[in-house]
Design a protein around this nucleic acid. Structure first.
Lengths: 137, 137
DNA sequence: TTAATTAATGCAATTGAGTTGCATAAACTA
DNA sequence: TAGTTTATGCAACTCAATTGCATTAATTAA
């Protein structure tokens, strides 16, 4: 399992460090999207700047994607294997529960086709649904 | 026209002040969503805290809605007349241009129907499309 | 129209996420 | 194993967001 994680880092040309392995494992264990603050709470042993840069390196290499958020605090979710640095293909719905505050990726719920006015070019689509999740219902 | 603005404030139980009238007029004049920073640049005469609280009072009363944003800086757009404090019905697409950075509400582009897993309850839907707008193409 | 009441404004100050520079430590390469 | 490159931790800074409080302005009631 640990070997698996190391392979992911290698595939993205990232050095294998304790922090990166721990953070990646945390994302794999959690179903939900995580914020910088979540990482800081979880890992006392790493400096907040290190966690910040770990998130950034994962973003740049296409391991994570950033999820737009009204609150202003950025949250991050795991990308599918098919993501590359330039082109993220996380074509799934993000659900934010207004009760527990958790944001999760509904990987099996695809974003429907959208249309924009003439002359507009679409690079990406982000669909954020808010409401009550099954655990809080 | 000014009377029109005053009536909107009255309808939302907000006192009529210069700042609120100016800010609302600014939103009506602009096609695009605006941020706190935009207001600060536009209105030297008002303190940034006043502008901040003006945005908040408009949010609370359902005059504006907040648009989720990867960048972390909140942007705001005008709600339709049908919006109430608890239930925002701004069922339109938000388009963010990756070139000029502007965010606009595509009022005539409805958000397609979405489905969520069993047990999940939908309160609202936010669809943010990014790409290149017609002016930058 | 004026006095009393209630809310908005401006200023000072604080918080917290996000960010950068630099010296040190760790990971990789040959 | 030695040399090279990158990651980490610490200090420090920026900026948006936020709160408290005294003052000013808007509304309400007499």
């Amino acid at each position: 399992m640990q070997e698996n994680l190391k392979q992911i880092l290698k595939n993205h040309s990232l050095r294998i460090t304790d922090c990166r392995l721990d953070v990646m494992q945390y994302f794999l264990d959690e179903k939900n999207a995580l914020s910088q603050g979540d990482l800081e709470s979880r890992f006392d042993k790493y400096d907040r700047v290190t966690l910040y840069r770990t998130l950034n390196s994962f973003l740049d290499s296409g391991i994570l994607h950033r999820i737009p958020n009204e609150s202003g605090t950025a949250t991050y979710g795991l990308c599918h294997d098919t993501c590359s640095p330039d082109h993220h293909t996380h074509n799934h719905i993000h659900f934010k529960c207004n009760n527990c505050g958790q944001i999760e990726c509904l990987d099996d719920k695809a974003v429907p086709q959208v249309s924009v006015p003439t002359g507009y070019k679409i690079d990406g689509v982000n669909l954020i649904v808010d409401g009550t999740c099954a655990r809080c219902a």
